[in-house]
Design a protein around this nucleic acid. Structure first.
Lengths: 164, 164
DNA sequence: TAAGATTGACGCCTCAATCTTA
DNA sequence: TAAGATTGAGGCGTCAATCTTA
């Protein structure tokens, strides 16, 4: 589709793979978004809380376990302003909070609240079940492994970017 | 990452594949969006024009070669309202136009204009080059083929949805 | 009654500019 | 001067409601 002309440098199979990748990602995100909405979360909020939850469980000290805004923005595919916005939303609903860094007064660390952890724990089973249903029940383990390594490489080459 | 607990039904490799899929799709879309912006197009506008361009080149009659709004909305991952909005934008910039259907007065067919075709032809090489650089130069042909079939299956199971 | 499409309100996200501290 | 983060303006896309024709 869309001009399968060899001069353009991509053959039909490649184009098909590209479109399948984009469309699969889009549709998966859409299905996920619908399910997360039942728990009052957007996909980004969910990703954010999941990261913060992990950080909190791995923290050596209860007073730690947060993440810097910049770390989060780089880890998630989102601008810094978008992250600021969502963290504010999460603060309004009491699922996360801001703390100042001890060493650098410019920095802000985001941390999950107990309510946030509760929410994530409630949300996770349904989320995993949905991903399992739409992705892993349809794809063989070998295919999974291939995709994981191949897409990991793609992501690696795309990651160095920096955003506003 | 994010609670690799077997009780949740997904193991670490599966979770990794899922995250890689989402992130690869996101980052690819972002890189593509940046490049398309140089040609004054959003990703959705580009997809829209590409479809309409194909439809016009395959039309038996010059007066045909358009697509119904519903067809487009189902083909692209977008709501009908979103499609209406974008088609209006494309009309403003003269890249596409609306026509009434001959048989059903409720229907609207979208058609690409000569200016739209020119724009697509101008935009395509850079787009393909970017996709080639970030996706196909990093992934082997075997991996491509695996992804194409596997993700095609995923898309197939996700497609039946209907939207407002 | 239902199907095709559009409108208006609203939330999300990005960009550019700004503020604060290093 | 630069880094970390935020703000305000503006575009995009969704939902719910509406309009028109079948």
């Amino acid at each position: 589709m869309t001009i399968p002309d060899p001069r353009h440098g991509l053959d039909a199979d490649q184009l098909g793979a590209y479109f399948a990748l984009i469309e699969a990602g889009d549709r998966l995100q859409r299905a996920v978004a619908d399910q997360l909405a039942e728990h009052g979360l957007t996909h980004l909020q969910f990703s954010l809380l999941a990261r913060l939850h992990d950080a909190s469980t791995q923290a050596p000290d209860a007073s730690l376990g947060g993440l810097r805004m910049n770390e989060l923005a780089d880890a998630l595919v989102v601008s810094r302003s978008g992250l600021t916005y969502q963290l504010t939303q999460l603060e309004k609903t009491g699922l996360a909070e801001r703390t100042t860094t001890p060493d650098d007064d410019r920095g802000v660390v985001a941390r999950i609240t107990p309510a946030g952890s509760t929410r994530i724990v409630e949300t996770m089973p349904g989320h995993v079940a949905l991903v399992k249903q739409y992705l892993f029940d349809v794809v063989t383990p070998d295919e999974i492994e291939t995709m994981r390594t191949a897409l990991g490489r793609v992501v690696e080459h795309l990651r160095p970017e920096r955003r506003a």
